[in-house]
Nucleic acid binder design. Structure first.
Length: 921
RNA sequence: GCCUGGGUGGUGGAACUGGUAGACACGCAGGACUUAAAAUCCUGUGACCCUUAUCGGUCGUGCGGGUUCGAUUCCCGCCCCAGGUACCA
């Protein structure tokens, strides 16, 4: 039989599904291995060829682990809450649940065709009430906990209440909002409502004022992505920064632990580095500056308190709460105007635009803490309200942004650390001796930091402080398509709904947009009241709520009593291998770590890091094709001739192009605009240009895996995706090379068949060369899988099959081992051949991986490259048995080497056994 | 702007710890088989120079410098591209 991939693939996919081949065993005595993919958001566009890249890699690994004796958990599900479904609902009125179900069904169909070894019996959907019930349950635990910084651990809020009623809050060390001190007696006499208000300052899930992008015209909060240059992407309405009460989580309390335990994770250094920078631990001091003619003080945070004598002005964020109180009458209008202009800029715009320097003097002054001088107070949008205290002491001589600000507004610059030339630029390095600094003069930066902090603390104007860039996470969203927050309000105080009332399901509403008063969509729900009486919270949870703990649910996905039973949690434990994109480096991965630590603190987990090993697959970009329209005509000129004309480049659908040559009839049919197109050809062909861009519908560069599978089969798709390049690297999709991989599978198939395509293998013992080819491959494939270098193992398969073909090998034992080696990569063809070889169907996935025998690979000679001054001249085959001196003697005696030496005697001979010989003359 | 990664033939990439740059494929060119096509197989294929052809030589891993017997690999400076930048997922 010829290689009929679609028959074979359909047959085995059905077999696996019917026999539950990849169901993880529930016996907890076998060694386990947990391989997880970042689950997809089911978008309306379906899967494109970029999505399966990571899934194929993890599938190869999961299948490999099964072959090496592990009980493998390899589940899949959907992150199915999200904005696109909601926006589609706003446009069309269709309920997001319907859209989502349709999309999930389509995803499932597409995934099934690729032949993954997922355990579908554990499938989860974050938008399913049976799942989000537990997301809500976790929120309740967060609400019912406080963070005890004395022991660096979350604890039940009852513990805190007990402490309050016995000793007040003076001794409590907690991550909390600023709370006045009270005694036990005062606490016990407080009305319940007041007690609840105070507790809200301590809860890990709490309400707080946060800055958001507010669009008055749409009556909604927008993501930074939805804001372009101060206007909403949808509708182009103005957007401003607004303070809003929002649910938040105290992730910042975990900053130190999130930082510390990074060290023990088997993640790549870049990802760890990104998280470290994101958490952004910096040591410095909080310093208070007292205002001239005003009782208030301005607190700044500085990582360079040593430069305090160089501070020549303060800069507050335009939103800083003191700005309006301290601004002098003459400056009110200018300050208000500046605040307004800053309010329309997003935080990202403010950070990236460093070239335009803007700011405004407030008319106010503060006293320098150690000098008898007054320094002016400015506002400037390079200072962010959300970092530190929202105020900086500007030391222009030693900070680049302060320097630019001072130059622009002609403010004083005082050098206090020697080493730079402050007439040209600021000197930011932390090296050099202090000058112009009173009691710090002559000290190094390090010494000065210590001494000045001591002085600040002695004068009671501040203290040494560790500051984190990581902010608490805003947890409320003004959206419909997310988990309802399981909270109701009584007397303006939030309370949890009872656990027995979970899940709190999404109410049905007429429209998915905010109400006319700018309330979130859930406020549209009629008669939606807790116990028919109390108003529910109307914001929903963010997209990352469900994805922060889903890996736990897979361990016991059907459980209705608990989020997962303790025995399952203990056995499956951490995810051993997690594969997904690096775009989640600081979002999802940080939140999931936070949830894990929190659940660990409460005793639900026995581990406090979710993902032991992490691999980031690169992004598959699109490869767009272009045609070139001669301006003002409907003529299109071939890429290589386009310089002779004035042209406009237009996207051509990549499905009308093969190897950059345009299929003209297909192209004409692709768009009415092109129906009457004329072409200026080059040698009878129309060559298209190309460019690498994001894969998207609008760029006509989306390649659908279904099309590839139909044409070449899933095994070809799987191997080609791996062959494309290193897993971690981003690369453009290009279908051009796929023939090579397909040809390889046909050749592989042919090894088992005679010229008439009858299955035929021989029982004879393997020859030396056959064994060599096989064992070279076993070694290579094993090494490659373990270092996730799948592209190179595909090459090795090709090399091996080419060798066996040359050897006319049809030896059964060699070929059977080859089938096992290939099975993680191309499971369908392997199952088929495995069965043809006489093995019982389906047993391939749990058979044993072949063992490498080094004896077959022993070499006794090596062809040394002989180079002179580092340039290779000739190759000489020399025995590997000889010692260094004999090899060198042999080389120097060689006539050809002598020719190159031209009678000169080498000054030095470099000999690296089995690698190279270099003669230096 | 800041953080992180990347840049090697016409194309995707290989070279794992500093040791023969371009494995394996695609494409292209030429050939075999065929009435023809498809499929399959064989040969060549980084650029330039020399040569009738061989033989041979020079250059070459984004750009400019450095370390080394030897650099795609290590160090310094720059350019370009991609991802993230806290309410996209």
């Amino acid at each position: 039989m010829d290689y009929k991939f679609s028959e074979i693939e359909g047959k085995w996919q059905q077999f696996w599904a019917q026999n539950g081949t990849f169901k993880a065993e529930n016996s907890y005595n076998k060694p386990k291995y947990y391989v997880l993919d970042m689950f997809p958001y089911p978008s309306g566009a379906g899967l494109h060829v970029g999505h399966p890249l990571g899934y194929i890699a993890s599938d190869i690994f999961a299948r490999y682990k099964r072959l090496t004796g592990f009980n493998v958990l390899h589940p899949m599900g959907y992150d199915s809450f999200g904005l696109p479904a909601e926006q589609y609902a706003i446009q069309t009125g269709q309920h997001p649940a319907i859209t989502t179900t349709n999309n999930i069904n389509r995803y499932r169909e597409q995934l099934d065709r690729i032949g993954f070894s997922f355990d579908w019996s554990r499938e989860i959907k974050t938008s399913d009430p049976s799942y989000y019930r537990w997301t809500q349950w976790i929120f309740q635990q967060l609400f019912n906990s406080w963070y005890n910084t004395a022991i660096q651990k979350a604890e039940p809020i009852e513990n805190l209440i007990a402490i309050f009623s016995q000793q007040g809050n003076a001794s409590v060390k907690a991550a909390c909002a600023e709370t006045p001190e009270f005694t036990a007696l005062q606490w016990n006499e407080l009305p319940a409502k007041e007690q609840q208000k105070i507790l809200l300052n301590y809860r890990i899930a709490y309400l707080a004022d946060s800055w958001v992008n507010w669009c008055p015209a749409l009556g909604t909060v927008l993501a930074n992505d939805e804001v372009k240059d101060g206007y909403s992407e949808r509708g182009g309405h103005p957007v401003e920064q607004k303070l809003m009460k929002q649910w938040s989580l105290r992730i910042a309390a975990y900053a130190d632990r999130l930082l510390a335990s990074l060290n023990d994770l088997d993640w790549t250094d870049p990802i760890k580095e990104m998280q470290r920078n994101w958490i952004g631990k910096s040591e410095g001091a909080a310093i208070q500056f007292s205002l001239v003619d005003h009782a208030k003080k301005i607190e700044v945070f500085s990582t360079r308190p040593d430069t305090i004598f160089g501070a020549t002005f303060l800069v507050l964020a335009p939103e800083h709460e003191l700005v309006n109180q301290i601004t002098k009458a003459d400056y009110k209008d200018a300050v208000a105007a500046y605040q307004k202009s800053a309010a329309i800029k997003s935080e990202r715009d403010r950070m990236s635009d460093v070239k335009t320097i803007t700011g405004q003097f407030t008319g106010a002054y503060v006293h320098h803490p150690f000098l008898d001088v007054q320094i002016p107070v400015w506002i400037g949008d390079y200072v962010l309200a959300s970092y530190g205290t929202g105020a900086v002491m500007a030391v222009p001589a030693h900070d680049a942004r302060d320097y630019a600000f001072a130059k622009h507004f002609n403010l004083n610059i005082i050098e206090v650390v020697a080493g730079g030339d402050i007439s040209i630029a600021s000197y930011d390095a932390k090296e050099g001796l202090l000058l112009n600094s009173d009691f710090l003069n002559g000290l190094t930066v390090k010494e000065a930091v210590k001494k000045v902090i001591a002085a600040i603390e002695a004068a009671e104007i501040g203290k040494g402080k560790i500051n984190f860039r990581l902010r608490d996470a805003i947890f409320g969203r003004q959206r419909y398509w997310g988990e309802p927050i399981p909270v109701y309000y009584q007397d303006d105080i939030p309370y949890l709904i009872e656990q027995k009332d979970l899940p709190l399901t999404l109410p049905s509403i007429d429209k998915f947009i905010p109400t006319e008063d700018g309330e979130p969509p859930l406020a549209r729900a009629h008669d939606w009241k807790y116990k028919n009486e109390f108003a529910y919270e109307t914001t929903t949870m963010p997209g990352w709520a469900g994805s922060s703990w889903y890996y736990l649910r897979y361990m016991d996905s059907q459980n209705e009593q608990v989020f997962a039973n303790p025995a399952a949690l203990k056995y499956w434990n951490q995810v051993d291998l997690y594969i997904g994109g690096s775009e989640h480096a600081t979002g999802h991965l940080l939140y999931a770590r936070f949830f894990c630590k929190f659940l660990f603190d409460l005793g639900y987990l026995t581990f406090d890091e979710p993902f032991k090993k992490l691999i980031n697959q690169g992004m598959i970009q699109g490869r767009s094709n272009f045609v070139y329209r001669v301006n003002g005509t409907n003529q299109y000129v071939s890429f290589d001739l386009k310089e002779q004309y004035q042209t406009t480049a237009l996207h051509a659908d990549v499905n009308c192009v093969e190897n950059d040559i345009l299929n003209i009839p297909k192209f004409k049919a692709s768009f009415p605009e092109f129906a009457n197109a004329e072409f200026i050809l080059s040698a009878g062909k129309y060559y298209c240009g190309f460019e690498v861009e994001k894969m998207s519908k609008s760029k006509y560069n989306v390649v659908n895996p279904d099309d590839i599978i139909q044409r070449y089969g899933a095994d070809t798709l799987r191997m080609y995706e791996m062959f494309l390049g290193p897993l971690e690297q981003s690369k453009p999709w290009n279908t051009n090379g796929i023939e090579g991989v397909h040809k390889f599978l046909r050749k592989f198939w042919k090894l088992f068949h005679n010229d008439q395509f009858d299955f035929q293998v021989a029982d004879a013992p393997a020859s030396k060369q056959e064994n060599k080819a096989l064992h070279k491959l076993i070694k290579k494939v094993q090494e490659d899988i373990e270092r996730f270098s799948f592209n190179t193992s595909v090459s090795s398969f090709m090399i091996c099959v080419n060798e066996l073909q040359d050897l006319k090998c049809n030896n059964k034992s060699v070929l059977q081992d080859l089938v096992i080696l290939l099975s993680p990569y191309a499971p369908h063809i392997s199952e088929e051949l495995w069965a043809l070889l006489g093995n019982s169907a389906g047993s391939l996935s749990t058979t044993k991986f072949p063992v490498y025998n080094p004896e077959f690979l022993v070499e006794d000679e090596f062809s040394y490259p002989i180079s002179i001054n580092g340039k290779t001249k000739i190759n000489l085959a020399i025995s590997l048995q000889l010692n260094q001196q004999s090899v060198i003697d042999l080389v120097l005696a060689n006539a050809e080497v002598q020719k190159y030496l031209e009678g000169k005697i080498p000054k030095k001979v470099i000999f690296v056994k089995g690698k190279i010989i270099n003669l230096v003359v």
